[in-house]
């Protein structure tokens, strides 16, 4: 559905250079520490910034770089929730419904009302007066009522408690189940959210994609080896992706967990977690 190829954006102290695919019917997670380039990637995809190179394609059609009109045309197929931006705080959910109803031909006001009722979002209370959870829910609900083919969600669960996060993630799964050709591109720094939701994960660091992996593979085949100085010297390093010096010796990230379980039964092997992955890929060295 979406294909970003070598999309490049130069800033004074930062360069974004990413390639990313969002196939139909998939949930893609974009992970990385703060300032890694997640939001910039979304902005490049939405045409909010002018890219310096590369291409963005939607459903096989390349969007002309710098053509705001072409970007505006594809945005009608998107549902977007940005982390630091949204409707004016002066608006209430009723205003949001009116505006989105006028923006999108397929907007379903009844669905919007039912979501608001389901999540107890008061329709006549200003957004500024809503709780953090309700604000976040309203943002996500606003993306889901015009039959969007792709939801682009930048940190939709940031600042939410576990119950609110669970409700939101459930809503996203529901949205995909309604129509399996829909896709979601989501970023979050809460790894457990993405572990249970995404089909594929992209790890971005310093503006570049440093890892792309199937979530199931990541959780089943990636592992953290905790090695003393002595065992580090002995293990086969062929399948070690990243190494980090620790107090106890070395932490090594591998994508061949089974190999080390079978050949080095004495070493400590921890199952792969996204947080470990981020830490190792961003803080570790070769």
């Amino acid at each position: 559905m979406i294909r970003m190829r070598d999309v490049k954006k130069n800033y004074k102290n930062f360069t974004l250079q990413v390639s990313l695919d969002v196939p139909r019917g998939t949930i893609i997670g974009l992970i990385g520490k703060n300032g890694a380039g997640k939001s910039t990637t979304f902005k490049a995809l939405l045409g909010l910034i002018h890219i310096d190179g590369g291409t963005v394609s939607f459903n096989g059609n390349e969007i002309k770089t710098g053509s705001d009109k072409e970007f505006a045309n594809i945005r009608k197929y998107f549902g977007v929730a940005l982390s630091e931006s949204g409707f004016s705080d002066m608006f209430d959910a009723g205003d949001v419904k009116k505006v989105l109803g006028a923006m999108f031909d397929d907007f379903d006001g009844v669905k919007f009302d039912s979501y608001c009722a389901r999540f107890n979002i008061p329709t006549e209370k200003k957004i500024s007066e809503l709780s953090t959870g309700n604000r976040a829910k309203l943002k996500v609900i606003s993306t889901m009522c015009h039959n969007a083919q792709l939801l682009i969600l930048d940190e939709p669960t940031a600042g939410l408690d576990v119950v609110a996060r669970d409700q939101l993630l459930g809503l996203l799964r529901e949205y995909l189940m309604e129509d399996e050709s829909r896709s979601i591109l989501i970023s979050s720094h809460i790894s457990t959210d993405l572990e249970g939701l995404c089909d594929y994960l992209y790890l971005i660091n310093d503006g570049s994609i440093v890892l792309k992996e199937d979530t199931d593979v990541l959780l089943s085949e990636y592992a953290l080896l905790k090695l003393s100085e002595e065992s580090y010297g002995k293990v086969d390093k062929t399948h070690i992706i990243q190494t980090k010096k620790e107090e106890f010796g070395y932490a090594c990230l591998t994508n061949q967990k089974q190999y080390y379980i079978e050949n080095y039964p004495d070493i400590v092997i921890e199952n792969g977690k996204i947080d470990d992955l981020i830490l190792m890929m961003t803080e570790g060295g070769e």
């Binding site: 909010l48 009109k69 998107f78 940005l82 931006s85 949204g86 004016s88 705080d89 002066m90 682009i152």
Partner: peptide
């Protein structure tokens, strides 16, 4: 000014409207 408050323009231009419009 209201559009620009709280980085509102980022969100506004993620909707299907062009800058020219």
């Amino acid at each position: 000014a209201y559009d620009a408050m709280n980085r509102g323009l980022s969100y506004l231009f993620s909707l299907p409207i062009s800058r020219r419009e």
